[in-house]
Amino acid sequence: MRIAVLSGKGGTGKTLVSVNLAAAAKAAFYIDCDVEEPNGHLFFKPENVREKEVTVAIPVVDEHQCNGCRRCVDFCRFNALAFVGGKVSVFEDICHSCGGCALVCPVNAISEKQRVVGMVRRGESGGVGVLGGIMNPGEASGMPLIKQLMRDSFASPGYLTFIDCPPGSGCLVMESIRDADYCVMVAEPTTFGASNLQSVYELVKLFGFPHGVVLNKCLDGENPSEQFCLDNGIEILGKIPFDKILGKITSEGQIAVRESEAYARLFGALLQTIIRDVRHETTVNPQRKRRYG
């Protein structure tokens, strides 16, 4: 069972929700897909961490073999290649590692080298398998890392898996939720929060994922995100209060369900609601096509 946690912007509570759900589940996987600014490990403080470099393939052109036909340059839709001064220049930052240039080369002048773009790591914290990755500074895209994390997470199937998505609703989020069985959207009680909720809601709906909303930082009074859920018939899975105690636990890098009875109950109940929804969905809609699994 794979549960993705997402939100339209950063700072809404994705990590709070996904870390605490995984901790409440006890035996689970937590995957931090925010490879630009990972922070789940700050809470789990995983042990027995193993690291692995992630590389992408970059073309290398043999100048002696190259006949200057420029088919590779014309083929590259990312414009990562140029042919000037009698030779091919490769712009590594722009290359998307599709391998097409090597395929179209009529004289086999193009081979590939591996370029390290970051690393993924895996550790353990109180029964929870903690996976995450981090991009090397200056890299343009975290996509190769997220793909690696997804492949690695399917190495131990059957576990409850929580996917802490990058913020927003862009490519990295789409890749992170791709094989999810369920999407949990976290939203703040502001007009801006409701607008961000709308952007992820549209994404989740577009791909037809079963979904629900967790309202975070709840105060008495008006909640535009709650209103958005009511107006659109979106299930509200639970509410987390705007609470000083929770803020203090979190600011100290602790996990609320491991520190507080009240929060162990709150996230335990939230977890049961989500599991019930997913089971219901898998009965109604049994075969989702997976990419990695």
Partner: peptide, 10 residues
């Protein structure tokens, strides 16, 4: 979508 400068310069 990307690499516009490279293609223009080419």
């Amino acid at each position: 979508p990307g690499g516009a400068g490279i293609k223009t310069a080419q």
